[in-house]
Protein backbone atom coordinates (compact mmCIF):
# COMPACT_ATOMS: atom_id res chain seq x y z
CA UNK A 1 0.00 0.00 0.00
CA UNK A 2 1.53 3.30 -1.10
CA UNK A 3 1.29 6.40 1.06
CA UNK A 4 0.22 9.31 -1.11
CA UNK A 5 1.78 12.77 -0.69
CA UNK A 6 0.42 15.69 -2.69
CA UNK A 7 2.71 17.76 -4.91
CA UNK A 8 1.42 20.97 -3.25
CA UNK A 9 2.27 19.67 0.23
CA UNK A 10 5.88 19.20 -0.83
CA UNK A 11 6.02 22.65 -2.44
CA UNK A 12 4.82 24.21 0.83
CA UNK A 13 7.35 22.23 2.89
CA UNK A 14 10.23 23.21 0.62
CA UNK A 15 9.16 26.84 0.67
CA UNK A 16 9.23 26.78 4.47
CA UNK A 17 12.72 25.23 4.42
CA UNK A 18 14.02 28.09 2.25
CA UNK A 19 12.44 30.89 4.25
CA UNK A 20 13.22 29.57 7.73
CA UNK A 21 16.47 27.83 6.91
CA UNK A 22 18.20 30.99 5.66
CA UNK A 23 17.21 33.11 8.66
CA UNK A 24 17.80 30.98 11.73
CA UNK A 25 21.30 29.84 12.63
CA UNK A 26 21.05 26.29 14.04
CA UNK A 27 21.50 26.23 17.84
CA UNK A 28 24.55 23.95 17.71
CA UNK A 29 26.41 26.42 15.47
CA UNK A 30 25.35 29.36 17.63
CA UNK A 31 26.62 27.70 20.81
CA UNK A 32 29.89 26.77 19.13
CA UNK A 33 30.43 30.40 18.07
CA UNK A 34 29.80 31.54 21.65
CA UNK A 35 32.33 29.01 22.92
CA UNK A 36 34.88 30.15 20.32
CA UNK A 37 34.35 33.81 21.24
CA UNK A 38 34.97 33.02 24.89
CA UNK A 39 38.21 31.13 24.17
CA UNK A 40 39.62 33.44 21.47
CA UNK A 41 42.72 35.37 22.60
CA UNK A 42 43.14 37.73 19.62
CA UNK A 43 41.12 40.92 20.21
CA UNK A 44 40.26 41.61 16.54
CA UNK A 45 39.23 37.96 16.11
CA UNK A 46 37.08 38.21 19.23
CA UNK A 47 35.38 41.26 17.72
CA UNK A 48 34.61 39.36 14.50
CA UNK A 49 33.16 36.43 16.45
CA UNK A 50 31.00 38.82 18.48
CA UNK A 51 29.74 40.31 15.22
CA UNK A 52 28.84 36.82 13.95
CA UNK A 53 26.81 36.12 17.10
CA UNK A 54 25.13 39.53 17.03
CA UNK A 55 24.40 39.01 13.34
CA UNK A 56 22.62 35.72 14.09
CA UNK A 57 20.52 37.50 16.75
CA UNK A 58 19.54 40.29 14.37
CA UNK A 59 18.70 37.79 11.62
CA UNK A 60 16.44 35.78 13.92
CA UNK A 61 14.74 38.77 15.55
CA UNK A 62 14.13 40.66 12.34
CA UNK A 63 13.54 37.69 10.04
CA UNK A 64 16.45 38.65 7.79
CA UNK A 65 18.81 36.22 6.05
CA UNK A 66 21.89 35.49 8.20
CA UNK A 67 24.01 36.04 5.11
CA UNK A 68 23.13 37.77 1.86
CA UNK A 69 24.46 34.75 0.01
CA UNK A 70 21.38 32.60 0.48
CA UNK A 71 23.18 30.07 -1.61
CA UNK A 72 22.68 27.37 -4.10
CA UNK A 73 19.58 25.52 -2.87
CA UNK A 74 20.99 22.09 -2.03
CA UNK A 75 18.66 19.35 -0.78
CA UNK A 76 19.28 15.94 0.73
CA UNK A 77 16.14 13.88 0.27
CA UNK A 78 15.31 10.61 1.97
CA UNK A 79 12.27 9.08 0.36
CA UNK A 80 10.62 5.91 1.57
CA UNK A 81 9.91 3.28 -1.11
CA UNK A 82 6.26 3.29 -0.10
CA UNK A 83 5.69 6.96 -0.93
CA UNK A 84 3.81 8.00 -4.04
CA UNK A 85 3.82 11.64 -5.14
CA UNK A 86 0.50 12.82 -6.57
CA UNK A 87 0.31 15.62 -9.12
CA UNK A 88 3.89 15.89 -10.38
CA UNK A 89 7.43 14.73 -9.78
CA UNK A 90 9.41 15.27 -6.59
CA UNK A 91 12.09 17.18 -8.51
CA UNK A 92 9.49 19.58 -9.92
CA UNK A 93 7.99 20.07 -6.48
CA UNK A 94 11.38 20.91 -4.96
CA UNK A 95 12.17 23.42 -7.70
CA UNK A 96 8.74 25.01 -7.40
CA UNK A 97 9.12 25.29 -3.60
CA UNK A 98 12.56 26.84 -4.10
CA UNK A 99 11.18 29.35 -6.60
CA UNK A 100 8.38 30.42 -4.25
CA UNK A 101 10.55 30.39 -1.13
CA UNK A 102 13.31 32.57 -2.59
CA UNK A 103 10.73 35.03 -3.93
CA UNK A 104 8.48 35.28 -0.88
CA UNK A 105 11.38 35.19 1.57
CA UNK A 106 13.21 38.09 -0.13
CA UNK A 107 16.21 35.83 -0.61
CA UNK A 108 18.99 36.51 -3.09
CA UNK A 109 18.85 34.80 -6.46
CA UNK A 110 22.37 33.61 -7.16
CA UNK A 111 22.10 31.07 -9.98
CA UNK A 112 23.14 31.74 -13.59
CA UNK A 113 21.88 29.81 -16.61
CA UNK A 114 25.14 28.37 -17.88
CA UNK A 115 28.52 28.46 -16.16
CA UNK A 116 30.78 29.58 -18.98
CA UNK A 117 29.10 31.64 -21.67
CA UNK A 118 25.94 33.60 -20.98
CA UNK A 119 25.90 33.51 -17.16
CA UNK A 120 22.44 35.06 -17.13
CA UNK A 121 20.68 35.06 -13.75
CA UNK A 122 17.73 32.65 -13.68
CA UNK A 123 16.02 35.15 -11.34
CA UNK A 124 14.35 32.50 -9.19
CA UNK A 125 17.36 30.62 -7.78
CA UNK A 126 16.46 27.43 -9.62
CA UNK A 127 17.45 24.81 -10.50
CA UNK A 128 18.23 23.26 -7.13
CA UNK A 129 20.88 20.61 -6.54
CA UNK A 130 19.09 17.53 -5.19
CA UNK A 131 20.57 14.35 -3.72
CA UNK A 132 18.13 11.45 -3.41
CA UNK A 133 18.35 8.49 -1.12
CA UNK A 134 15.74 5.77 -1.48
CA UNK A 135 15.04 4.15 1.88
CA UNK A 136 12.54 1.78 3.50
CA UNK A 137 9.21 3.07 4.79
CA UNK A 138 6.64 5.69 3.85
CA UNK A 139 8.23 8.94 5.01
CA UNK A 140 9.72 11.80 3.03
CA UNK A 141 12.51 13.75 4.75
CA UNK A 142 13.72 16.98 3.18
CA UNK A 143 16.96 18.57 4.40
CA UNK A 144 17.69 22.00 2.97
CA UNK A 145 21.36 23.05 3.11
CA UNK A 146 21.82 26.34 1.23
CA UNK A 147 25.44 26.68 0.14
CA UNK A 148 27.24 29.97 -0.29
CA UNK A 149 29.68 30.52 -3.14
CA UNK A 150 32.57 31.90 -1.09
CA UNK A 151 33.09 28.76 0.94
CA UNK A 152 32.16 26.38 -1.89
CA UNK A 153 34.89 27.90 -4.09
CA UNK A 154 37.57 26.89 -1.59
CA UNK A 155 36.75 23.16 -1.75
CA UNK A 156 39.17 20.59 -3.07
CA UNK A 157 39.39 17.00 -4.30
CA UNK A 158 42.53 14.88 -4.51
CA UNK A 159 42.90 11.31 -5.66
CA UNK A 160 45.47 10.16 -3.10
CA UNK A 161 47.46 6.95 -3.35
CA UNK A 162 46.75 4.42 -0.60
CA UNK A 163 50.42 4.79 0.42
CA UNK A 164 49.84 8.50 1.18
CA UNK A 165 48.09 7.23 4.29
CA UNK A 166 46.96 9.22 7.28
CA UNK A 167 49.66 11.89 6.85
CA UNK A 168 48.57 12.51 3.25
CA UNK A 169 45.01 13.10 4.40
CA UNK A 170 46.05 15.46 7.20
CA UNK A 171 48.31 17.49 4.87
CA UNK A 172 45.76 17.95 2.12
CA UNK A 173 42.90 18.92 4.44
CA UNK A 174 45.00 21.33 6.53
CA UNK A 175 46.55 22.94 3.43
CA UNK A 176 43.18 23.34 1.76
CA UNK A 177 41.81 25.20 4.78
CA UNK A 178 44.93 27.30 5.41
CA UNK A 179 45.32 28.29 1.74
CA UNK A 180 41.64 29.31 1.64
CA UNK A 181 42.62 32.01 4.18
CA UNK A 182 39.76 34.49 4.72
CA UNK A 183 37.83 33.62 1.56
CA UNK A 184 35.41 31.00 2.93
CA UNK A 185 34.37 33.22 5.89
CA UNK A 186 36.20 31.43 8.69
CA UNK A 187 35.62 30.10 11.25
CA UNK A 188 34.53 27.29 8.96
CA UNK A 189 33.12 23.84 9.39
CA UNK A 190 35.33 21.45 7.45
CA UNK A 191 33.57 18.56 5.70
CA UNK A 192 35.86 15.71 4.63
CA UNK A 193 34.96 12.71 2.48
CA UNK A 194 37.39 9.80 2.22
CA UNK A 195 36.93 6.75 0.01
CA UNK A 196 34.38 5.75 -2.60
CA UNK A 197 34.97 7.20 -6.05
CA UNK A 198 35.79 10.69 -7.35
CA UNK A 199 32.18 11.92 -7.05
CA UNK A 200 31.31 9.85 -3.98
CA UNK A 201 34.00 11.44 -1.80
CA UNK A 202 32.83 14.92 -2.81
CA UNK A 203 29.27 13.99 -1.89
CA UNK A 204 30.45 12.63 1.48
CA UNK A 205 32.36 15.85 2.18
CA UNK A 206 29.21 17.85 1.64
CA UNK A 207 27.06 15.45 3.64
CA UNK A 208 29.53 15.67 6.53
CA UNK A 209 28.56 19.33 6.89
CA UNK A 210 25.05 18.31 7.97
CA UNK A 211 26.28 16.70 11.17
CA UNK A 212 25.74 18.67 14.40
CA UNK A 213 28.79 20.88 14.83
CA UNK A 214 31.53 19.09 16.70
CA UNK A 215 29.74 15.74 16.90
CA UNK A 216 32.45 13.13 16.41
CA UNK A 217 32.60 10.30 13.91
CA UNK A 218 31.44 7.14 15.76
CA UNK A 219 34.60 5.31 14.62
CA UNK A 220 37.30 6.29 17.19
CA UNK A 221 40.06 6.21 14.56
CA UNK A 222 38.25 8.81 12.47
CA UNK A 223 37.19 10.76 15.56
CA UNK A 224 40.85 11.06 16.55
CA UNK A 225 41.78 12.14 13.04
CA UNK A 226 39.08 14.83 13.13
CA UNK A 227 40.57 16.19 16.32
CA UNK A 228 44.14 16.16 15.04
CA UNK A 229 43.19 18.00 11.84
CA UNK A 230 41.13 20.57 13.77
CA UNK A 231 44.04 21.29 16.11
CA UNK A 232 46.47 21.70 13.21
CA UNK A 233 44.07 24.03 11.39
CA UNK A 234 43.61 26.20 14.46
CA UNK A 235 47.36 26.33 15.14
CA UNK A 236 47.71 28.03 11.74
CA UNK A 237 46.39 31.33 13.19
CA UNK A 238 44.50 32.10 9.97
CA UNK A 239 41.69 33.18 12.28
CA UNK A 240 38.22 34.60 11.70
CA UNK A 241 38.10 36.40 8.33
CA UNK A 242 41.73 35.37 7.74
CA UNK A 243 42.99 38.29 9.83
CA UNK A 244 44.61 36.22 12.57
CA UNK A 245 43.37 34.43 15.67
CA UNK A 246 42.86 31.05 17.30
CA UNK A 247 39.54 30.21 15.62
CA UNK A 248 39.99 29.15 11.99
CA UNK A 249 37.61 26.18 12.06
CA UNK A 250 34.80 25.27 14.46
CA UNK A 251 34.86 21.56 13.63
CA UNK A 252 36.15 18.89 11.26
CA UNK A 253 33.65 16.22 10.23
CA UNK A 254 34.88 13.17 8.33
CA UNK A 255 32.67 10.70 6.49
CA UNK A 256 34.15 7.62 4.84
CA UNK A 257 33.16 4.84 2.47
CA UNK A 258 34.75 1.63 1.17
CA UNK A 259 37.01 2.18 -1.81
CA UNK A 260 38.83 0.49 -4.69
CA UNK A 261 42.08 -1.37 -3.98
CA UNK A 262 43.95 1.18 -6.14
CA UNK A 263 42.48 4.37 -4.67
CA UNK A 264 42.06 6.71 -1.76
CA UNK A 265 39.89 9.60 -2.96
CA UNK A 266 39.75 12.62 -0.63
CA UNK A 267 37.47 15.65 -0.77
CA UNK A 268 37.21 18.77 1.38
CA UNK A 269 34.08 20.91 1.37
CA UNK A 270 34.08 24.05 3.50
CA UNK A 271 31.10 25.68 5.11
CA UNK A 272 31.18 29.24 6.43
CA UNK A 273 30.21 30.04 10.03
CA UNK A 274 26.69 30.77 8.73
CA UNK A 275 26.22 26.99 8.52
CA UNK A 276 22.57 26.73 7.69
CA UNK A 277 20.33 23.70 7.40
CA UNK A 278 16.68 22.96 7.96
CA UNK A 279 14.75 19.71 8.01
CA UNK A 280 11.14 18.83 7.37
CA UNK A 281 9.63 15.35 7.53
CA UNK A 282 6.38 14.54 5.76
Amino acid sequence: MKRKIEFATIVEAVKKCCIEGTKVLPQDVYLKLEEAEKNETNSLAKDFLRQCILNADIARNEAMPICQDTGFAVYFIEIGQDVEIIGGTLTEAINEGTRQGYKEGYLRKSIVTDPLFERKNTRDNTPAVIHYDLIAGDKLKITFAPKGGGSENMSGVKMLKPSDGRAGVVDFVVNTVVNASGNPCPPTIVGVGIGGTFEKCAFLAKKALLRKVGEKNPNPLYAELEEEILNKINQSQVGPQGLGGDTTALAVHIEYYPCHIASMPLAVNLNCHAARHYEVEL
Binding site: A59, M64, I66, D69, K109, G182, C185
Partner: peptide
Protein backbone atom coordinates in the same frame (compact mmCIF):
# COMPACT_ATOMS: atom_id res chain seq x y z
CA UNK B 1 32.79 40.70 8.47
CA UNK B 2 31.94 38.00 5.96
CA UNK B 3 28.68 36.31 6.83
CA UNK B 4 27.41 39.22 8.95
CA UNK B 5 24.96 40.39 6.31
CA UNK B 6 22.09 41.23 8.67
CA UNK B 7 24.35 43.22 11.01
CA UNK B 8 25.94 45.20 8.18
CA UNK B 9 22.54 45.95 6.59
CA UNK B 10 21.75 47.96 9.74
CA UNK B 11 24.36 50.54 8.72
CA UNK B 12 22.84 51.01 5.25
CA UNK B 13 20.24 53.77 5.34
CA UNK B 14 19.39 54.10 1.66
CA UNK B 15 19.99 52.03 -1.46
CA UNK B 16 19.22 52.63 -5.11
CA UNK B 17 20.24 50.77 -8.24
CA UNK B 18 22.15 53.11 -10.55
CA UNK B 19 23.40 50.71 -13.25
CA UNK B 20 23.23 47.23 -14.75
CA UNK B 21 19.85 46.33 -13.29
CA UNK B 22 19.73 43.27 -15.56
CA UNK B 23 22.47 41.70 -13.40
CA UNK B 24 20.01 41.25 -10.52
CA UNK B 25 21.92 41.09 -7.22
CA UNK B 26 25.06 42.05 -9.15
Amino acid sequence: TGGAGALIAKSIKKAEIIAYEDLGAE
